[in-house]
Design a protein around this nucleic acid. Sequence first.
DNA 1: CCGCATTAAATGCACTTGCATCCCATGCAC
DNA 2: GTGCATGGGATGCAAGTGCATTTAATGCGG
Lengths: 126, 126
Amino acid sequence: METALAEKWRAVLASHAATSCAIDRELGETFGIGVSEFELLERLWEFEQEEHLSGSRAQVLSGSVHLSQSAFSRLVARMEKAGLVRRSMCEDDRRGIFITLTDEGRERYRRARPVHRRILAETLSD
Amino acid sequence: METALAEKWRAVLASHAATSCAIDRELGETFGIGVSEFELLERLWEFEQEEHLSGSRAQVLSGSVHLSQSAFSRLVARMEKAGLVRRSMCEDDRRGIFITLTDEGRERYRRARPVHRRILAETLSD
DNA sequence: CCGCATTAAATGCACTTGCATCCCATGCAC
DNA sequence: GTGCATGGGATGCAAGTGCATTTAATGCGG
């Protein structure tokens, strides 16, 4: 049925619009971060927990935030300027960079997370 | 369960990114329209079928494409310049405008629709 | 009729995004 | 080593977006 897929797509559009808008608004004014920033903080935090790495390759993270390479590069630059992450060269391949959470970034994530989850509960359940 | 909602949100983010990216790319290079343009064409076409109106109030449509009021205003302006829709003043309230499909807009929708549905089938099923 | 809050849409502005390109490091062929 | 294709990120630029503001029409109380 072609209608079923179209319905599904509209539902995705609606959820995405409502939720990302709410996240941008609330996390924006309370913590100064948006959807992409929060997603990156979360990935970094998860990698930190799971793998105890000293950092994560930019390329790997890039795929997990659904952003173009250039947008991702700027996102990291913004967040570094905001003191949330740190960029460091990776020694084995000096073209690549490692990205690590700063204490401030970890703390910001810790505080933003419950708000984020509350918004999900409010806008994603229906 | 808080994890379930987070998972759902990630799924929405992923579907949205993959699908809207594919639509923008293909409909963009073949028909010169993006996700928002297609959605507006579709709404206008549907209203045309259902209600035989001479047009639709901007405000009503605005809600159905998940765009801010300003973005919507510019979307309509772009599409009017591209010859896909026409803006006309509405007589009973001269602040509002009616938006109607042009023949070209109807034709563009007719041709873009199967491509759009094919993309949905490819990226939204998994 | 007059002022004034309200509403519809347009516009100035800052910011984010994607595409194309550029820069630098790598590594493979010779 | 030299040359050259490849790959990782950064950057110039044009386009789209949201917020705040503006412009214009409405309508209500006096």
